[in-house]
Design a binder for these strands. Structure first.
Length: 265
DNA sequence: CTCAGTGTTCAGTG
DNA sequence: TCACTGAACACTGA
C-alpha cells in the first residue's frame, strides 16, 4: 500500500534497522522491468561494501545515503515493499533485491506486480524523477494563497490534480479520497473552482491525514474510525461511512474514486 | 474466465 | 508547449 505514509513508515524502519551498517551481501534479481536502467550486477557491485549513513524520502520515492556514490533509489509502484528481516529468515516470494549487513540485518525488496523500480543515482534528490516532484506534505504544505495559485489554472477534477506528483508529492488514490472526504469536497469539482475557504479546508485535511497516518506507522487498524478509508474498498454498492452515509464509487481522474455525496460538495 | 487494482508514463487530442 | 484523457504496463487474487 505504498503512498506517502507507507513509504515513510518503511523509511523509518530502514533507518532504525540499517543506519551505520556495512552492506556485506547484495542479491539482485534478473528482472529488467524492475531494474529498468541499471543492470542487477552493476547495482550489486555499487552497493557491496558500502556503509549506510542515512535514509531519505520524497513523495513515494525512497533512497539510501551511503558513504560513497552512487546511491540506491526505490519506488514501490502498486505492490512493492521493503521488509526488514534478520539474516537466516525464510525467503520471501517475489523478491527483487536482498541486502544483508555486517550486523545480520536483511532488507528485502519484493514486488509481485513489477511496477516498482530499483535504480542507482549519483544524487537522487537533485535528479529526476525526485527533482521533478512538488511539495511533500510531511515537509509542509504551501500557504493557502500559494496553493490556490497553483490550483486556479487547472480545469481537471480536484481528484486528478491531487494525484499530480509535480504538485502533491506522495498523494495516492486512498489519500486523495480521504482528503476530499474530510475537506467536504466533491472529487469531480474543477480544481480551479475551489474558493479560498475550500482550498484552506483541502490544505488542512491533507496535512491532518498524512500526519496522522504517519504517526500510527501507516497501520490502517489505527486510523481513526471516522475515516472513509475503512469503508471504501471493494466497490460495495451498499457501503456506508461510520455515520451511515452512502459511499459512491466512480471513475474520476482515471482512478476508482470513493466519495460521499451527502458530505462532499 | 473475467476483472479490478494503494502507480507512472506515453500517445493522441484540443 | 501545456493540459487533459485514456490506454498500456505486469501480475495476483477474488
Amino acid at each position: 500500500m505504498p503512498e506517502l505514509p507507507e513509504v515513510e513508515t518503511v523509511r523509518r524502519r530502514l533507518h532504525r534497522a540499517l543506519r551505520g551498517h556495512r552492506i556485506v551481501r547484495i542479491e539482485a534479481a534478473a528482472d529488467p522491468v524492475v531494474f529498468d536502467v541499471v543492470a542487477p550486477a552493476d547495482f550489486a557491485h555499487a552497493l557491496k561494501g558500502a556503509r549506510i549513513v542515512s535514509t531519505h524520502r520524497k513523495g513515494k520515492h525512497l533512497w539510501l545515503g551511503l558513504d560513497r556514490r552512487p546511491w540506491p533509489l526505490f519506488h514501490f509502484g502498486m505492490t512493492g515493499w521493503i521488509h526488514v528481516d534478520r539474516v537466516g529468515t525464510p525467503e520471501r516470494r517475489f523478491t527483487k533485491m536482498v541486502l544483508e549487513t555486517d550486523k545480520g540485518v536483511r532488507a528485502v525488496f519484493t514486488d509481485p506486480r513489477r511496477f516498482g523500480r530499483i535504480r542507482l543515482q549519483e544524487d537522487p534528490a537533485a535528479q529526476p524523477p525526485v527533482s521533478l516532484l512538488g511539495f511533500d506534505p510531511l515537509e509542509g504544505v504551501p500557504a493557502v494563497a500559494e496553493l490556490q495559485r497553483r490550483l486556479v489554472r487547472r480545469d481537471a477534477p480536484i481528484k486528478a490534480v491531487l494525484l499530480d506528483q509535480s504538485i502533491f508529492a506522495g498523494v495516492g488514490n486512498w489519500v486523495a479520497d480521504e482528503v476530499l472526504f474530510q475537506a467536504g469536497l466533491a472529487p469531480q469539482r474543477a480544481a480551479s473552482s475551489l474558493t479560498t475557504v475550500e482550498a484552506r479546508a483541502l490544505r488542512s485535511a491533507l496535512l491532518r491525514v498524512v500526519q496522522k497516518a504517519v504517526d500510527v506507522g501507516a497501520d490502517d487498524a489505527r486510523f481513526p474510525r471516522t475515516w472513509l478509508f475503512h469503508h471504501r474498498w471493494g466497490k460495495n454498492a451498499a457501503a456506508l461511512t461510520s455515520r451511515g452515509d452512502r459511499i459512491l464509487h466512480e471513475t474520476i481522474g482515471g482512478r476508482t474514486t470513493a466519495w460521499v455525496p451527502k458530505r462532499q460538495r
